[in-house]
């Protein structure tokens, strides 16, 4: 078994929208989803968020329109046959340009998203190619720095959402010592099929950060319970997930049989929590769990003052 390394992750900056992480180089137009300060293509420090780039483009277009209007206005003034005509032309031109400027200012917040949508559609092949380039960079770093590879894949997975990249992250996570203070994830890493590394990872997370074990991860474990039992430490994985599920009453109510099957293997503090939960809510439906908990309590904790 490979020895696990103690590492500290670079903080993962969570944005409300994935596109906020997409940046483009103002010089060579290369896209990137990584955090590098310099463009990997041209080496310049000209990477800007996509929204900033599009806003600049829209503002430039609007300025060009005002300049065209100004040019037409100046031509009108130049060809004025009388002084009065020239003054009236100037006034009309100023009014019209001011109107155009006013409309552009009001419409800027609507033009930018429209332009972004157009850019995404037009640059789709380029964006995909550049994300693949990011991914190749991540894989190239694997030999020397597994942590860096994981961090890069974590960023890329914000955009590329398939089982392959999820499993790559899980395999890397299994080479690290997991701790309570780490920024770990479970739900974004769940895949459609069974994987021993993923099951083992969920089992470990259930021990160090049980709040990350939620409905979808419990359902994953349940769906592949038979496969997990064939693993060397399968019972341990299932027991730690059952112990983590006791965190919330709704999970105990939703999966009483699952918890019943592994109630004998969970630590005392988790069993105590389960016992108290059942005592405090006798009206809830616990299936056979309540009986099993009563039996375990009699067998192991009859003289324990905590119960």
């Amino acid at each position: 078994m490979t020895k696990k390394r103690a590492v500290t992750f670079k903080p993962y900056i969570k944005t409300r929208y994935a596109y906020e992480k997409l940046r483009v180089c103002r010089h060579c137009q290369q896209f990137t989803v990584l955090w590098e300060a310099e463009c990997s293509q041209c080496g310049k420090s000209t990477l800007v968020p996509i929204r900033e780039r599009v806003t600049a483009k829209v503002k430039r277009t609007m300025l060009n329109e005002r300049l065209i209007a100004l040019f037409i206005g100046l031509v009108a003034i130049y060809f004025g046959q009388t002084f009065l005509q020239m003054i009236l032309s100037a006034a009309a031109a100023i009014l019209l340009i001011a109107l155009l400027w006013f409309v552009q200012r009001r419409m800027l917040p609507f033009e930018v998203p429209s332009e972004m949508e157009t850019l995404f559609e037009q640059e789709q092949p380029r964006i995909i190619e550049d994300i693949k380039r990011n991914r190749k960079l991540a894989v190239a770093a694997l030999k020397d720095d597994e942590l860096l590879t994981y961090e890069m894949l974590r960023e890329i997975s914000t955009f590329v959402q398939n089982d392959k990249i999820r499993l790559q992250q899980v395999v890397l996570l299994q080479s690290f010592v997991l701790r309570k203070d780490m920024d770990l994830r479970v739900e974004p890493l769940l895949i459609d099929s069974f994987d021993t590394d993923l099951a083992a990872y969920i089992g470990e997370v259930a021990k160090v950060q049980r709040e990350l074990i939620k409905n979808s991860s419990i359902r994953y474990i349940l769906a592949y319970e038979a496969h997990i039992l064939e693993m060397e430490n399968g019972v341990e994985i299932l027991s730690s997930v059952a112990g983590a599920a006791i965190r919330l009453k709704k999970y105990v109510e939703a999966y009483p049989e699952f918890i019943r099957r592994y109630a004998r293997n969970i630590p005392k503090d988790r069993f105590l929590r389960l016992y108290r939960m059942i005592q405090q809510h006798p009206e809830s439906y616990w299936g056979n769990l309540a009986e099993e908990v009563a039996v375990i309590r009699r067998e192991r904790y009859e003289w324990d003052s905590d119960f």
């Binding site: 409300r16 929208y17 994935a18 596109y19 997409l22 998203p113 429209s114 972004m116 949508e117 995404f120 559609e121 789709q124 092949p125 964006i127 995909i128 994300i131 693949k132 955009f159 590329v160 959402q161 398939n162």
Partner: peptide, 18 residues
């Protein structure tokens, strides 16, 4: 498009082809 629609659009464009 709203920000949510933009986000969905980008992710669907990236993932359908990739």
């Amino acid at each position: 498009p709203s920000s949510d629609e933009l986000d969905l659009k980008l992710l669907s464009l990236i993932n359908q082809k990739s």
